[in-house]
Design a protein around this nucleic acid. Structure first.
Lengths: 194, 194
DNA sequence: CCTCTAATGTTCACAATGTAAACATACGAT
DNA sequence: ATCGTATGTTTACATTGTGAACATTAGAGG
């Protein structure tokens, strides 16, 4: 590490890490371009050499978050019982959201789309957005859902844990043991029924 | 209605309506205190006679949204078949979110809490926040879920439709017919199972 | 009807933020 | 060694939320 301070060396990652830390510590209003630059020891406009605008920085932070989430899901996806593994994934999903509330919100709703791309995809199409984390879930579902119903099963599973996480974060539901609640709620899903 | 323009007459409601309209038309970044004041034909700081700060205006708009949502749920809660009525509520919930995406997001995640009130309530406690809309759902659940499981059933039902709505709004899922998808997904819930 | 007060709006002012434009520095290929 | 290009700096500006001081008018009490 050279002591020449003009060129930072790895400013891009520094900004992402500083931004993520600001988000965790001070919430979304604390995550500001200038604050991130300050934390990285750089002038505010230096950020524009690495990110087109603030949204691009947010997107990069969100992408890191999705990688973390994938890790967490993969770590929870254990055992030979597919249904149990799925429920464990659900608990891990909710636990991740609660452990990183601001990051979780940023990941899903934080990056503003310029244009509302109303691309007409097929009914119930799953977008590959968080493909990594999504894949961990989809694999287990494919294993335990009846064929032909896997897409509905995936959407239902994802929706129920995502909704629970969101409602807890937004303080619409209060849970002393969120993971346990997640498992209990996930158990209400029955893919084979009817 | 007098033509004296100094005192607006009903500025509070005008600001709420103007704010809601701005939100619908231009999204959250377009909903600004100054823009709302401009739309109401008033100076920016006049708003502070009616709202402590911007957050208070947002909260008022969100409250109106919850009233609308309750109306929509009540209108969908028809028929003697409790399970069918519940699924229709789910479809209406998702339809509302899609019809009012920015409002829906504001209602649940838009108003920033000053302090993260980590009040330790009981496990799986339901907060009365949107008590009106929530009550419509809870009533049906109580009717069809096994006694002793109603709270879990309520949380599961709310979570699955809320999650589906959120994922669609955030473009993680694309649905040609969201209401139909909501009904199909809601059908995966089985409260009596096991 | 006149007056006075409180409710309601206005004008100024300011700090913070995102971002554009012009300039400076230094890394690396020639 | 030279020079272009990537990277960072300084300046500048419009927008936003919001505080402070001032203006106006509605309506109660004489």
């Amino acid at each position: 590490m050279s002591t020449s301070k003009y060129h930072h060396g790895d400013l891009r990652h520094s900004l992402i890490r500083a931004g993520a830390e600001l988000l965790r510590a001070r919430g979304p209003t604390g995550l500001t371009l200038r604050a991130a630059a300050r934390a990285a020891g750089v002038s505010p406009t230096a950020t524009y050499r690495h990110f087109a605008d603030k949204n691009a920085l947010l997107a990069a932070i969100a992408a890191e978050g999705f990688a973390e989430l994938e890790q967490a899901l993969r770590a929870a996806d254990l055992g030979s019982d597919g249904r149990a593994a799925l429920n464990q994934q659900g608990a891990a999903y909710v636990a991740f959201a609660i452990a990183n509330p601001h990051l979780f919100r940023l990941m899903f709703a934080g990056v503003q789309a310029k244009q509302t791309t109303t691309a007409a995809c097929g009914e119930g199409t799953l977008l590959p957005a968080p493909q990594g984390a999504f894949g961990v879930l989809a694999a287990r579902i494919a294993q335990i859902a009846p064929p032909g119903e896997t897409e509905t099963a995936i959407i239902a599973s994802w929706s129920i844990v995502h909704g629970l996480a969101a409602l807890i974060l937004d303080q619409r539901i209060t849970a002393a043991d969120p993971s346990a609640l997640a498992a209990r709620v996930a158990a209400c899903l029955d893919f084979d029924a009817k």
